[in-house]
Design a protein around this nucleic acid. Structure first.
Length: 198
DNA sequence: GTAGTGATTTTCT
DNA sequence: GAAAATCACTACA
């Protein structure tokens, strides 16, 4: 059990994306400690990636992407949901890894309380919006330092044997890049059988 | 079981 | 004014 250092994030985004699978994200929330095993992520590289928030240059909203790696980038979307990102690459390089899904490990009763509609435990974190809601992550955690003591990622020695690569989901641009990585053996990925349409 | 559409707010053009 | 890195509900097979 080892907290990942900043040097883990200060590398090519696609390397971080692949290697963060099977790691554990931990959130010391005000109502208790939460932990989950990461099973699905997507890479967003600012340079040459039309789907990245930073594709059109720096703005007030995405400035964290350009900042120091190893921080959280959380944004509000579709009026009711948040998405949680890990900022990667060196300062000045806008890139991040979007956490799409995870398996509940610790603090499961708390997650159920945040998402009373979701009865099945393996689906509590099966999507970026649901992950933030079940974890209780809000814009209050935007910009949190992943080497700090509020939110961080641990290596618990898990290896993912069946890593699957697929086109990214929920975007209308640059879907030809297969930058979505997930654990093909996990029941908690957001789309068990990815559809080609959309 | 799968497929389609509405909800709702922040951000940028 | 329009789009967005989504989710939940309804309709239909």
């Amino acid at each position: 059990m080892r907290k990942l250092p900043r040097s883990f994030y200060n590398r090519p985004t696609l390397d971080v994306t692949e290697e963060i699978l099977g790691k554990y994200v931990v959130f010391a929330s005000p109502v208790g400690r939460l932990a989950a095993r990461i099973v699905e992520v997507e890479a967003y590289c600012g340079e040459g990636d039309p789907a990245c928030h930073a594709a059109c240059g720096p703005t007030e909203r995405n400035r964290l992407l350009y900042g120091v790696p190893g921080h959280c980038y959380i944004y509000f979307i579709y009026g009711m949901y948040c998405c949680f990102n890990f900022v990667t690459e060196r300062k000045g390089q806008a890139a991040a890894v979007l956490l799409r899904a995870a398996e509940p490990v610790e603090g499961i009763p708390i997650m159920h309380r945040h998402s009373p509609n979701e009865k099945r435990q393996e689906l509590l974190l099966s999507g970026p919006g649901k992950f933030c809601r079940s974890f209780g992550l809000t814009l209050d955690q935007n910009g949190a330092d992943l080497t700090g003591s509020e939110v961080w990622v641990e290596d618990r020695g898990d290896a993912v044997s069946n890593i699957v690569r697929a086109p990214r989901i929920g975007i209308r641009k640059a879907t030809e890049y297969e930058w979505r990585y997930f654990d093909g053996d996990s029941p908690s990925v957001s789309r068990p059988r990815p559809r080609v349409a959309r």
